Structure formats: structure tokens, C-alpha cells
Computed example of a mutant assay.
Amino acid sequence: MERRTLTVKEVANYLGVHTDTIYTMVKLKQIPHLKLRNRILFTKDSIDLWVQDEAKKSLDNE
């Protein structure tokens, strides 16, 4: 199975937010990412797991 990486723009589109939001979240270490030289990359699996965890946290706090 191929593990494809996503760019900031692709993750922003996937999550429905602005790229500035993704850059801010990366800077604050709020979203799983990896840096390869000057590039910020994401794996779809890690983003999907992160979304699930964030949704669970939201439900736990209600």
C-alpha cells in the first residue's frame, strides 16, 4: 500500500480550512506533520487519526 504525503494546500482543502490555519497549527504543533528540509508534509492516515481523536475529545468535553 502506497503512503502518499499531502501538502499544506491539500490538507487545508481536505479539512475545509485556509492554508494559513494549517501553517499556524503546524507552528503551534497542533497537527501531525513532518518537515523535509523546507517542506511541510502530512500523511492522510495521520490526519484521519488526528481528526478522529479531536472529535472524540470534543465529545468527551460535552
Rank of each mutant, 00 (worst) to 15 (best):
M1S: 11
M1L: 12
E2M: 00
E2W: 00
E2H: 01
E2R: 04
E2N: 04
R4Y: 02
R4D: 05
T5K: 07
T5W: 01
T5C: 08
T5L: 01
L6F: 04
L6V: 02
L6S: 06
T7I: 02
T7Q: 05
T7Y: 11
T7A: 12
V8Y: 06
V8A: 09
K9T: 11
K9R: 12
E10N: 05
E10H: 01
V11H: 07
V11I: 06
V11T: 10
V11Q: 06
V11G: 08
A12H: 08
A12Q: 02
N13E: 15
Y14V: 02
Y14G: 00
L15F: 08
L15I: 12
G16R: 10
V17T: 08
T19V: 09
T19A: 10
T19N: 09
D20A: 15
T21F: 06
T21K: 03
T21V: 14
Y23F: 14
Y23D: 01
Y23M: 04
Y23I: 10
Y23E: 05
Y23T: 09
Y23L: 13
Y23C: 01
T24R: 13
T24C: 00
T24Y: 11
M25C: 07
M25K: 14
M25D: 12
V26I: 14
V26Q: 07
V26Y: 08
V26C: 04
K27C: 01
K27V: 05
K27L: 03
K27T: 04
L28T: 05
L28K: 15
K29I: 00
K29N: 13
K29L: 03
K29P: 00
K29S: 12
Q30D: 14
Q30P: 03
I31T: 07
I31G: 09
I31K: 08
I31S: 14
I31Q: 12
P32G: 10
P32V: 04
P32D: 11
P32T: 09
H33A: 01
H33G: 03
H33C: 10
H33W: 01
H33V: 00
L34H: 03
L34T: 03
K35T: 11
K35W: 02
K35M: 14
L36D: 07
L36N: 04
L36C: 06
R37H: 06
R37W: 10
N38Y: 11
N38H: 08
N38F: 03
R39K: 14
R39T: 02
I40W: 06
I40F: 04
F42L: 08
T43L: 05
K44F: 11
K44I: 03
D45T: 13
D45P: 02
D45C: 04
D45I: 00
S46D: 15
S46L: 04
S46R: 09
I47M: 02
I47Y: 09
I47E: 11
D48S: 07
D48T: 05
L49V: 06
L49S: 11
L49H: 09
L49F: 06
W50M: 09
V51E: 02
Q52T: 05
Q52K: 08
D53K: 04
D53G: 02
E54D: 03
E54I: 11
E54P: 08
K56R: 15
K56A: 15
K56V: 09
K56M: 14
K57W: 00
K57F: 09
K57C: 01
S58W: 13
S58Y: 14
S58R: 06
S58P: 01
L59W: 07
L59K: 15
D60M: 09
